[in-house]
C-alpha cells in the first residue's frame, strides 16, 4: 500500500543561495532503512520536478537516522532575487512530505 512520507517522517527546509536543503527524519528510527530504500534522489527529483531544476544529492546520516537532500537550482534564483512568495523555500519541507512510498 501507499503511504505519504508525512505519516512516517518530518522535515525542515533550509536554503543556501539557489540551493534547497531538505532533511527527512523518521519519527521511528526503525523506519530509517525503509526510507533509505524508498526515498532515492531520483524519486525525489521526480516528485519535485516542478520545483527543482537541477540535480539532487542524497546524504545518509545513519548516526541520527536521517537523510538530507541537497537540491540544486531550486529557488528561482534564491532568497535575495527570487520573485517567489516564499523566497527562502522554507515551506518546501512539506512538499517533500507529500511524496508517497510503497509499504508492505
Amino acid at each position: 500500500m501507499k503511504k505519504k512520507l508525512y505519516d512516517l517522517a518530518h522535515s525542515r527546509a533550509g536554503d543556501k543561495g539557489n540551493t534547497l536543503i531538505l532533511s527527512l527524519i523518521p519519527y521511528d528510527e526503525q523506519d530509517y532503512n525503509l526510507l533509505c530504500e524508498q526515498v532515492t534522489a531520483e524519486k525525489v527529483k521526480e516528485h519535485l520536478k516542478e520545483i527543482v531544476e537541477g540535480h539532487i544529492i542524497r546524504y545518509e546520516v545513519p548516526n541520527i537516522a536521517a537523510l538530507q537532500f541537497t537540491c540544486h537550482q531550486a529557488l528561482l534564483g534564491g532568497v535575495t532575487t527570487s520573485l517567489s512568495i516564499d523566497t527562502h523555500g522554507k515551506s518546501l519541507s512539506f512538499a517533500l512530505l507529500e511524496m508517497e512510498i510503497d509499504i508492505d
Binding site: 543556501k16 540551493t19 532533511s23 527524519i25 546520516v61 541520527i64 536521517a66 538530507q68 541537497t70
Partner: peptide, 10 residues
C-alpha cells in the same frame, strides 16, 4: 536532529 541538518549543504 532537525536543527542539526538545517541549512547544511553537505
Amino acid at each position: 536532529k532537525e536543527q542539526l541538518l538545517y541549512e547544511v549543504i553537505n
